[in-house]
Design a protein around this nucleic acid. Structure first.
Length: 646
RNA sequence: GCCGAUGUAGCUCAACGGUAGAGCAACUGAUUUGUAAUCAGUAGGUUGCGAGUUCGAUUCUCGCCAUCGGCUCCA
C-alpha cells in the first residue's frame, strides 16, 4: 500500500496521505452542514479513514441521505438514553422509516408514553455533550463475544445472521451498538428531534416472538423542518375522518356493531354520489352491473379457496335449519353452514356461467357495489379506513389471454380519470411480480407481467417493480395515491387471476370451436367506498366539491320577515336538483354563517329585506368571497356551471 | 388476536375513597338580527358492563366490551 492516495473532490484531484479522514480529505468542501460523504459511491462517516484512491462527494444534512443519517443517529442517541435511564434494557433494531425512526427495546418493564419526556431530556444532554461517534471494525466472532458479555442477546442473534466476517460497531461515549452506519460525526449534530409514541412490536415482526417496546420518533436537519413536520401531524389530527365525520354528521360508530359505520343521511350522500359517478363511467367503459348473493353455502368457499385461505376473516353461520348447530367451527354444522361474502369474485363466476360463453362474448365486465364483510381482528379497526363492512367499486373482467393488455390499459385510463376528477393529482404505480409461492410456470408469469407492463407503457405510466409481491394466482398493479397530508394510500388494484377460472372450471368456445379458459381480472378503482371516503375527508379536510357536498346550498335568513322568501328559495333550489336547506332559526346572521362554515356548505345564500324586495340573493362562498349580489336565475346558472364529472 | 393507553351528559373536558361539574349542543323565553358564537332560564348522567376490596367506589383491584397508538393483516 502506498503512503499516498489520490482523492477527487468536486472534480479536482490531489494527493493526500493514506489514512486521512474523510473530513480532512474534503477540505473546504465540508461546510458546517456536511454530515457525511459519498466515497466511491458508498456512504462514509466523516471520521472514517481513507486507504485507497477515492472520489468524494459531501452529503449535506438537508439532503434525503443526510436526513436519513441524522434519523439513524438519533435512533442511536435514543437507545443510548434509554439504556442509561433503564438499566437492564436490551437493544434490538433501530431503523429509519418514512418520516422518522424507531428503535425496539427489550426493557425489564415496558416503556410508556410517560417515559418519553425523560428520554428526550437525556437525549438532549447526550447531544449537548458532543460525544464523538466512532466507527470500529472488528471480526464478527469478537463482536458476538462482546455483545454476549454485555447481555445483549438480541444483538448476538442479529450478528449470527450476518454473513460477513467483519462487522462495524459505533461508539459514542461509553455506549456502543452494532451498525452498518454511517452516522453523524458527533452527537452535537443531532438538534431537531421529537419522540412521538411507544407501541408494542414483536421481535422480527412475528407474533410468536417476544413483545418489545418500540419507541417512535422523528428528526430533521433543522428545527424549522421539524416544526413543519409537527404542524403537518397536527393538521392530520384535526382532519382525522373519524373526528370530521362526527362533526359533520356523516356517520357514526357504536360498540354495538364494531367496525361498521352507521351512514347518516349526509354521509350517505357522499357514498351515493361516488357510486353514481362510477355508474356513469361504467356505461362509458362498458361494465355491466350485477348483484350477487350476500350469503353462500360454505361449499362455495371450499371451491373458491376462501375456506382454506380466508376463513379466519369471514363471518360464518351454521345452517339455521340444521338440527344440531354446534358452535365448533370445524363441526359439520359449520362446514355445511353459510358464510357472508368477503369478496365478490366467486359469485361473479356464477354470472359468467349463466350462459355458455363464446370468444365473441368476451370480454365480459361485471361490476358490483354489494357490501362485503370481513371479520377483521379487533385491534386493526380504524374508522372507515379499516372497517368490517365495505362496498367496493368492484369489477371482474373475464377475457382471453389476448385481451388482457387492452383491458388493463383501459382500466388504467379509468384509474387516472377517476383520481384526477377527485383531486388526487399524483398517482403512483407498481407492478407486483411473481411471489415465491405461485401457481403456473415462471414463463407464464414473465409473459403476463410483461402484458401489465406494456399496458402501463401504453398509458405512458412510469412504474416501479414490487418484486415478489404479486398474489399467488397472478401479478398485479398496485396503485398508490398520496394525499394532501403526504401520506400514501393504496386504494386501487388491478390483479390478474388464473386461479379462480380454474377452480370454477370456467370456459369459453374458441373461434376454432375448441374450449379455452378465460382469464379473470379483479379490479377496483376507489377500492372500498368506506376507505375512499375516509381518505377523501382527510385529503380535503371535509371541504367537498359541489357535486359531493352533502349540503350544497344553505339559505340564511336575516330575520323573521324574510322567512317565507328563504323557504321559497330553498324550495326553488331543490326543484332545480340541488341539496338545499333554509336556516330560518331565530339567530343572528353571524351565528348562522359560522354554523354553515363549520358544516362546510359550499354555497351560503344570505337574504334580508333588501334581497327579498328585489328578489335577489347575497352570496357567500365557503372560505371565500362574500357579498356578491345575484338574481335568482344567476344563482341557478352559477350552480349549474359547477363541474359534475360524467 | 398481541403490547401500551383510554372510557364521566349528544360533543369537548373537569372532579375525586364520602350522594358528579363546566362549556357547547338540546328545550323554553326574550331579542328581529347584514356575513365565523345575542342574552336568560330549563332539562339532561346506574361515571362502558360485571364482579371484588371497603362502613362507603366514578375513584382501588380483577374480568369483559369498546375506543386510541402500534404490531400483524389488508380495500
Amino acid at each position: 500500500m502506498s503512503s499516498e492516495i489520490k482523492v477527487t473532490v468536486n472534480g479536482t484531484a490531489r494527493a493526500v496521505p493514506a489514512g486521512i479522514r474523510v473530513r480532512e480529505a474534503l477540505e473546504g468542501a465540508a461546510g458546517r452542514d456536511v454530515i457525511a460523504a459519498r466515497v466511491n459511491g458508498k456512504l462514509y462517516d466523516l471520521n472514517r479513514s481513507l486507504i485507497e484512491d477515492a472520489t468524494i462527494e459531501p452529503v449535506a444534512a438537508e439532503s434525503a441521505e443526510g436526513i436519513d443519517i441524522i434519523r439513524h443517529s438519533t435512533a442511536h442517541l435514543m437507545a443510548q438514553a434509554v439504556q442509561t435511564l433503564f438499566p437492564g434494557t436490551q437493544v434490538t433494531i433501530g431503523p429509519t422509516i418514512e418520516d422518522g425512526f424507531f428503535y425496539d427495546f427489550a426493557p425489564p418493564t415496558p416503556l410508556t408514553v410517560e417515559d418519553l419526556p425523560r428520554i428526550e431530556q437525556k437525549m438532549r444532554e447526550l447531544a449537548k455533550a458532543d460525544l464523538k461517534v466512532e466507527r470500529v471494525e472488528v471480526p464478527r466472532a469478537e463482536a458476538i463475544e462482546t455483545f454476549d458479555r454485555m447481555g445483549e442477546h438480541y444483538k448476538v442473534e442479529i450478528l449470527k445472521g450476518i454473513p460477513e466476517d467483519r462487522v462495524s460497531l459505533y461508539k459514542q461515549g461509553d455506549w456502543m451498538d452494532l451498525c452498518r452506519g454511517p452516522h453523524v460525526p458527533s452527537t452535537r449534530y443531532i438538534r431537531a428531534f421529537k419522540l412521538t409514541s411507544v407501541a408494542g412490536a414483536y421481535w422480527r415482526g412475528d407474533e410468536h416472538n417476544a413483545m418489545l417496546s418500540r419507541v417512535y420518533g422523528t428528526a430533521f436537519a433543522s428545527k424549522e423542518a421539524l416544526e413543519e413536520h409537527l404542524r403537518m401531524l397536527e393538521l392530520a389530527r384535526t382532519r382525522d375522518h373519524r373526528k370530521v365525520g362526527r362533526e359533520m354528521g356523516l356517520f357514526l360508530f357504536d360498540p354495538i356493531a364494531p367496525g361498521q359505520p352507521f351512514y347518516l343521511p349526509k354521509g350517505l350522500v357522499i357514498f351515493n354520489q361516488l357510486v353514481d359517478y362510477m355508474r356513469r363511467l361504467y356505461r362509458r367503459y362498458g361494465f355491466d352491473e350485477v348483484i350477487t348473493p350476500q350469503i353462500y353455502k360454505n361449499e362455495l368457499w371450499h371451491s373458491s379457496g376462501h375456506w382454506d385461505n380466508f376463513r379466519e376473516n369471514m363471518f360464518l353461520s351454521p345452517d339455521p335449519e340444521a338440527h344440531d348447530s354446534a358452535v365448533d367451527r370445524d363441526a359439520e354444522g359449520w362446514r355445511h353452514g353459510y358464510g357472508v361474502k368477503p369478496m365478490n369474485c366467486p359469485g361473479h363466476t356464477f354470472v359468467y356461467r349463466a350462459e355458455k360463453r363464446s370468444y365473441r362474448d368476451l370480454p365480459l365486465r361485471f361490476a358490483e357495489f354489494s357490501r362485503l364483510h370481513r371479520a377483521e381482528r379487533s385491534g386493526v379497526l380504524h374508522g372507515l379506513t379499516r372497517a368490517r363492512v365495505m362496498s367496493q367499486d368492484d369489477a371482474h373482467i373475464f377475457c382471453t389471454e389476448a385481451q388482457i393488455e387492452d383491458e388493463v390499459a383501459s382500466n388504467l385510463t379509468m384509474v387516472r380519470e377517476v383520481y384526477a376528477t377527485l383531486g388526487f393529482d399524483r398517482v403512483e404505480f407498481k407492478l407486483a411480480t411473481m411471489p415465491d409461492q405461485h401457481m403456473g410456470t415462471e414463463e407464464q408469469w414473465r409473459m403476463t407481467e410483461e402484458k401489465l407492463a406494456s399496458a402501463m407503457r401504453r398509458n405512458e405510466i412510469a412504474f416501479e417493480l414490487n418484486p415478489k409481491e404479486g398474489a399467488f394466482y397472478g401479478p398485479k398493479i398496485e396503485i398508490y395515491v398520496p394525499d394532501a397530508l403526504k401520506r400514501r394510500w393504496q386504494l386501487a388494484t388491478i390483479q390478474l387471476d388464473y386461479n379462480m377460472p380454474e377452480r370454477f372450471d370456467l370456459t369459453y368456445t374458441t373461434s376454432a370451436s375448441g374450449e379455452a379458459r378465460p382469464v379473470m381480472i379483479h379490479r377496483a378503482i376507489l377500492g372500498s367506498l368506506e376507505r375512499f371516503i375516509g381518505v377523501l375527508i382527510e385529503h380535503t379536510g371535509g371541504v367537498m366539491p359541489l357535486w359531493l357536498a352533502p349540503e350544497q346550498v344553505r339559505v340564511l335568513s336575516l330575520s323573521e320577515k324574510v322567512e317565507d322568501y328563504a323557504g321559497e328559495l330553498a324550495a326553488l333550489l331543490k326543484r332545480h336538483g340541488f341539496r338545499a336547506t333554509a336556516d330560518i332559526r331565530n339567530e343572528k346572521l353571524g351565528f348562522k354563517v359560522r354554523e354553515a362554515e363549520l358544516a362546510k356548505v359550499p354555497y351560503m345564500v344570505v337574504v334580508g329585506e333588501r334581497e327579498a324586495a328585489a328578489r335577489q340573493v347575497s352570496l357567500r362562498l365557503l372560505r371565500g368571497s362574500k357579498g356578491q349580489t345575484l338574481e335568482l336565475a344567476g344563482l341557478i346558472e352559477m350552480l349549474n356551471a359547477e363541474p359534475i364529472p360524467a
